[in-house]
């Protein structure tokens, strides 16, 4: 790791001020992706601004028809929360399947979405539920948040404070994990909401994306049977040592059918 100065602000305002005052600063959340990246010297910052002491951006709250999760809420807290399980059990499954128990004890929701790893789990929930990302400056619709490989709509110095997930009528998340890293080789989040059906895919492309063809089929008939002849084209999907684009395309369709079944779709 290259050397840096470490800061632990006690409020979001203080953190924002630090970000504005340093030459090359970076926010530190749970550190489960950032610290390994720094250790490999894939990135270099003059200052790390650690958000872990800011209590106002931690916690889980049911707010009417939505679930609001603070950015610095750790995966273990989401995975074991009764409030989450009652409102959006698909999030319980998602958070409980990230990495391993030791990673879940440290990793945070806000860190995951701000990092926007193409194989991370949380982006599929933000997009699949049509959630809203709340920052210290504005609110960003889930559809507008993820821009590309490790790229989001966040401006330099902008801090994710929470995500507001609308409670769906039905939802499920199913992933085919890489057996070593538990990252999603392919992960599919499906939700039937008051506004319609949404399908979000992670792990398969350079960035989480919606599967609008499948959404149209499921809007007519929310069942795995509606997807019987549904296939995904491999064009533009990831191909690497773990799987070819064709393999991922096939896996997306399989995981989607399983997710619809898990969400309690008509049979």
């Amino acid at each position: 790791m290259y050397a840096f100065d470490y800061h632990q602000p006690k409020s979001v305002d203080e953190a924002a001020q630090m970000l504005g005052a340093k030459p090359e600063p970076k926010l530190l959340a749970g550190g489960m992706s950032l610290l390994p990246t720094l250790k490999l010297r894939l990135a270099q910052y003059t200052d790390l601004v650690d958000l872990s002491a800011i209590d106002s951006i931690k916690g889980i709250e049911r707010d009417g028809d939505a679930l609001v999760i603070g950015a610095m809420t750790r995966h273990v807290e989401v995975a074991t929360s009764d409030t989450v399980k009652r409102a959006i059990p698909a999030l319980t499954t998602l958070a409980g399947g990230i990495g391993d128990p030791l990673v879940r004890n440290r990793g945070t929701m806000g860190g995951s979405i701000a990092n926007a790893d193409p194989a991370a789990d949380y982006p599929s929930a933000v997009l699949g539920l049509g959630a809203t990302v709340i920052t210290d400056k504005r609110q960003i619709a889930g559809d507008d948040f993820f821009k590309g490989l490790f790229e989001t709509a966040l401006e330099p110095g902008e801090i994710v404070m929470a995500v507001r997930y609308p409670v769906p009528l039905q939802a499920a998340y199913i992933k085919y994990p890489n057996p070593a890293s538990r990252f999603a080789l392919v992960g599919v989040f499906v939700a039937r909401t008051a506004a319609g059906v949404r399908v979000a895919v992670t792990g398969a492309g350079p960035c989480v994306f919606r599967l609008t063809d499948a959404e149209a089929l499921l809007a007519k008939n929310f069942s795995a049977a509606a997807l019987e002849n549904f296939t995904v084209k491999p064009d533009g999907l990831n191909a690497d040592i773990h799987a070819t684009a064709e393999y991922r395309a096939h896996a997306v369709a399989v995981m989607l059918k399983r997710a619809v079944a898990a969400a309690g779709g008509n049979t």
Partner: peptide, 27 residues
């Protein structure tokens, strides 16, 4: 492994197990 995967460095911090190769001492 030094890459947050193998768990050989697991210790308890405030009663919770974490990978100590992926946490800053100063934090």
């Amino acid at each position: 492994c030094d890459t947050t995967q193998c768990g050989c460095c697991t210790v308890h911090v405030n009663g919770v197990a974490i990978k100590s190769c992926t946490a800053l001492a100063v934090a």
